[in-house]
Design a protein around this nucleic acid. Structure first.
Length: 847
RNA sequence: GGGCGCUUAGCUCAGCUGGCAAGAGCACCGCCCUUACAAGGCGGCGGUCGGGGGUUCGAGUCCCUCAGCGCCCACCA
């Protein structure tokens, strides 16, 4: 094919052109007839669509895309779907704000409902039924997904856009519910009425994986408990408002100060309740006064003491975080009056009032001592978590930590040290995986419960659907053997009101994308997958939970490799956050620098390494893409001028052979790097070669390629240029998909992204005995000539009378093989050599 | 408290299994309209590779130790 090169190559319009072409040609379409060994399957992270795309998304998805493109060029059929994580709390919050509504599950469905218009921030949210609310969630996520897809296409992700899924769609719900029921059969899923961490604003239970410690201002309050015979016991507490929930005092069994009290009782201040003094090894003699107040429940240590010491429950907080109206406690003298003061108050208010009362009664010793301490929060929450007792569903993980650690060791981690995070998480697990949530927009737990004749719900005997009925919504669907009018009636049934945690569904992305059970043929071709790409912050959630599900469901790892990306930091290397206002949005960058340049920046961030947004680096990428365009134009213009020989010309000139030999090494290095998931190294090697190729080789060979040394010499140069350009464009293709496909199209049929990845062997064959030293010495001498011209303030076109090169015999031999090219490139009339120990050059300019 | 990572030119970072007379880009300074490229090219300035020990013919590269920064984990009255 004779090259067709534009006169003035430009980046303008390239992105639109190639986005359309790739779509029309189905360039990235997955061929599902490919056998498993030819398939490379990627478990793409489904981005949360309830928000805007973040530069961090651009960063890590680009990493994945370079690997996808490399594998495709290596001949693998790449299974590269895209999911949308639209299920869960973030969507609920966005829908509430966007439409100005609030879900009220007690309302009936209103088929004519339309959301309020012309919202102002002062409008109170409109209550809507759960089905109406879910409709709005679907409506908004559908438009959000379109926006996201447009950005991904702009970035040039080689996703197969015919294969998308959403974590709330029917297929995901079916997979999620099916897996839940199977885990129920295996005894992995179980329900339990137990104290769990609870967010009082979102009014839902929260799992260990969603916790976040935050440093909060607090205070130690020293309180006096009355012992027998007028003795007093002092304790320190940060939560005096829980005094009414106190069920015991606890100290270390070896603590001589308190040993005499064990087995006896003391009386709480204010409330006058008698509580036991008990011993437990977890009590730390060095903390506070060495003896602690156990409340139901102030923190997770309280839960342990309560459980292991068989203490009673005195719960005083409602699920909304306020003190209950009725205490389940019999108080001593005056206790009821104190309670009356506190009930209905928030934790904060109750704390303040309690302290006042304690001070008045003389039970507070000294003043509270201000401290800063870590407090557990729901990662999306704004108030500290409380602990309340509720019925929840769990998946057993604690019994399986050894197996899960073994799975972690089986997985190939890139970079390897990320495995340590997984291990420390698994080793630190302290509860089973809590999967039920008291929310609305999620996959429902596929269960109902019989209602006994006395009206009590019989949670111990859940009613389950056959798998063929899935997905089901127990709030509208009816269990087999029941009629709709038996819902919530004695002798009838009740639907489980809860939904599953978002991770309970997104942990099945390999099964969902691979159409587990629904399409066994596809599933067998793509599962277990090859790659899970993701950022390091969700190792404990998404990565861990996916390993758990695959372990139980398929008895294998879900993928062979995990490629962990770092974070994107702002230009000052600070973590980005909305509150700091330093979040960089990707679209302006894509528009200013172009997708290839943005991808170039992203690809320069090495696996797992946090990387700063860097305008300089983006400019470099922009410059590189323009350089690729221009260098290609030059090379192809040479090919166009030369009569294409029937047989490819041999590469005869030593300089050409040297360049090809060096290039073959680069191909080797880039290939090895990519195989090890180090896309950044592959890029760095390619780029370094390319700039040297342009600055040195092209300049050295230009004159000869134009025919200054005759046709045979020109043919060698042009053959080498053609081989090099073809390889270079393909090496860059995973990083710079737009400019490479543009350039490739100038002299090739078909997309470069379906072209074979370059092989070193043909380059080595063409290079023959090529000695890279020839290129090195020639470039070094040319550099000295340029330096001389620069310091003489003359043009690079200035003629040079004479150049004397002193160097070792070996290097002078190498130079001799390229002396004519050096002379032409430097416009040197006479190149003279003298053997010497050290390299040096004398340049005598003409005139 | 345990663990992981980082510390190389003013800035952002490469330097993989030890051989480097220490690299790139940006920034800075200077030169050049050179027929692929002036939204460019060429050249220059700039570092005792965080500190201290050790192994070695040889250490930015391996070992020990200390310090600073960042992150992960932890039952944090």
């Amino acid at each position: 094919m004779s090259p067709t090169v534009p006169d003035k190559p430009s980046l303008d319009g390239l992105e639109r052109k190639w986005i359309e072409r790739w779509e029309a040609d189905g360039t990235y379409r997955f061929d599902r007839t490919a056998s498993r060994d030819r398939v490379y399957a990627i478990d793409t992270p489904p981005p949360t669509v309830s928000g805007s795309l973040h530069i961090g998304h651009i960063f890590s998805y680009t990493h994945t895309d370079t690997i996808a493109r490399f594998q495709r060029m290596r001949g693998r059929e790449v299974f590269y779907p895209m999911g949308w994580d639209d299920n869960g709390l973030p969507t609920e919050r966005r829908v509430q704000n966007y439409y100005g509504v609030r879900c009220d599950a007690s309302l009936p469905y209103d088929p004519d409902f339309t959301p309020p218009e012309n919202l102002t921030s002062s409008d109170r949210p409109v209550p809507v039924s759960r089905p109406n609310f879910v409709e709005l969630c679907h409506r908004l996520t559908a438009t959000d997904e379109k926006t996201f897809e447009a950005v991904w296409r702009h970035l040039g992700l080689s996703v197969d856009w015919t294969m998308t899924y959403a974590t709330i769609d029917e297929r995901s719900q079916r997979a999620s519910q099916r897996s839940f029921l199977r885990l129920l059969d295996k005894g992995i899923a179980y329900q339990s009425e137990a104290p769990t961490l609870w967010d009082v604003d979102f009014q839902t239970a929260v799992a260990q994986a969603e916790l976040e410690d935050r440093d909060e201002a607090g205070a130690y309050h020293r309180l006096v408990f009355a012992g027998h015979d007028g003795a007093a016991v002092e304790i320190d507490t940060t939560r005096p408002e829980l005094l009414a929930a106190c069920v015991a005092l606890v100290a270390h069994p070896e603590d001589d100060r308190y040993r005499p009290l064990f087995g006896g009782t003391v009386t709480t201040p204010l409330f006058g309740v008698e509580v036991p003094v008990v011993a437990h090894a977890l009590a730390d003699p060095d903390k506070g006064t060495g003896i602690a107040m156990v409340c139901t429940f102030g923190d997770l240590t309280d839960v342990i003491w309560w459980r292991e010491l068989g203490l009673p429950v005195r719960a005083i907080l409602e699920r909304n975080g306020r003190v209950r109206q009725d205490a389940s406690v019999r108080f001593g003298d005056g206790g009821q009056a104190v309670w009356d003061e506190l009930r209905g108050k928030t934790v904060k208010q109750a704390r303040a009032r309690t302290v006042e009362l304690l001070r008045d009664s003389g039970d507070l010793i000294g003043e509270p001592e201000a401290i800063t301490h870590a407090v557990k929060f729901f990662e999306k929450g704004s108030r500290p978590l409380e602990i309340v007792t509720s019925r929840q569903w769990f998946f057993r993980t604690l019994d399986h930590t050894d197996a899960l650690l073994a799975r972690g060791a089986e997985l190939s981690w890139h970079p390897p040290y990320m495995q340590a995070r997984y291990e420390s998480w698994v080793r630190g697990l302290n509860s089973d995986w809590l999967v039920s949530r008291q929310r609305f927009f999620g996959v429902p737990l596929p269960l109902w419960y019989p209602i006994r004749p006395d009206g009590a719900v019989d949670h111990a005997h859940p009613l389950r659907p056959d798998e063929g009925r899935l997905p089901v919504d127990p709030s509208t669907d009816v269990p087999d053997g029941y009629q709709p009018d038996q819902r919530d009636r004695p002798g009838g049934f009740a639907g489980d009101p809860d939904v599953m945690d978002t991770w309970a569904t997104s942990s099945l992305t390999p099964q969902i994308a691979g159409a587990w059970v629904d399409d066994p043929d596809l599933f067998a071709r793509v599962f277990p997958m090859d790659l899970r790409p993701q950022a390091h912050d969700i190792i404990r959630t998404w990565l861990f939970s996916t390993v758990v599900r695959s372990h139980f469901e398929n008895d294998c790892l879900p993928w062979a490799h995990a490629a962990i990306s770092g974070f994107v930091l702002d230009p000052d290397r600070k973590k980005m956050s909305k509150s700091k206002g330093n979040v960089v949005t990707p679209l302006p960058l894509l528009e200013e620098y172009g997708a290839d340049a943005v991808r170039h920046w992203a690809s320069s961030g090495r696996p797992g390494v946090d990387t700063a947004v860097d305008a300089g680096q983006l400019k470099v990428g922009r410059r590189l893409t323009i350089k690729v365009l221009n260098a290609s134009k030059f090379v192809l213009s040479r090919l166009g001028d030369t009569q294409a020989p029937a047989q490819p010309t041999a590469v005869s000139a030593p300089l050409d052979r040297a360049m090809l030999s060096r290039l073959a090494d680069v191909v080797d290095e880039a290939t090895t790097a990519f195989e090890g998931y180090d896309y950044a190294r592959a890029l760095e090697r390619t780029e370094a070669f390319f700039w040297a190729f342009c600055d040195d080789y092209l300049e050295l060979v230009k004159s000869r390629a134009y025919g200054s040394r005759g046709d045979d010499e020109a043919a060698s140069a042009n053959r080498a240029l053609a081989l090099a350009l073809s390889a270079i464009v393909r090496l860059f293709a995973p990083f710079l998909p737009y400019v490479t496909d543009e350039v490739w199209s100038w002299w090739n049929e078909g997309s470069v992204h379906r072209a074979p990845w370059p092989e070193p062997a043909p380059l080595r064959a063409a290079a023959g005995d090529g000695e890279p030293l020839v290129l090195d010495v020639a470039a070094a001498v040319l550099g000295e000539v340029r330096k001389a011209k620069t310091s003489a303030h003359t043009s690079m076109r200035a003629e040079v009378d004479r150049v004397v090169v002193r160097d070792t015999a070996a290097r002078l031999d190498a130079l001799a093989q390229a002396a004519a090219d050096v002379g032409d490139a430097g416009r040197v009339s006479d190149v003279v050599t003298e053997e010497a120990e050290e390299f040096s050059v004398d340049v005598t300019l003409a005139g």
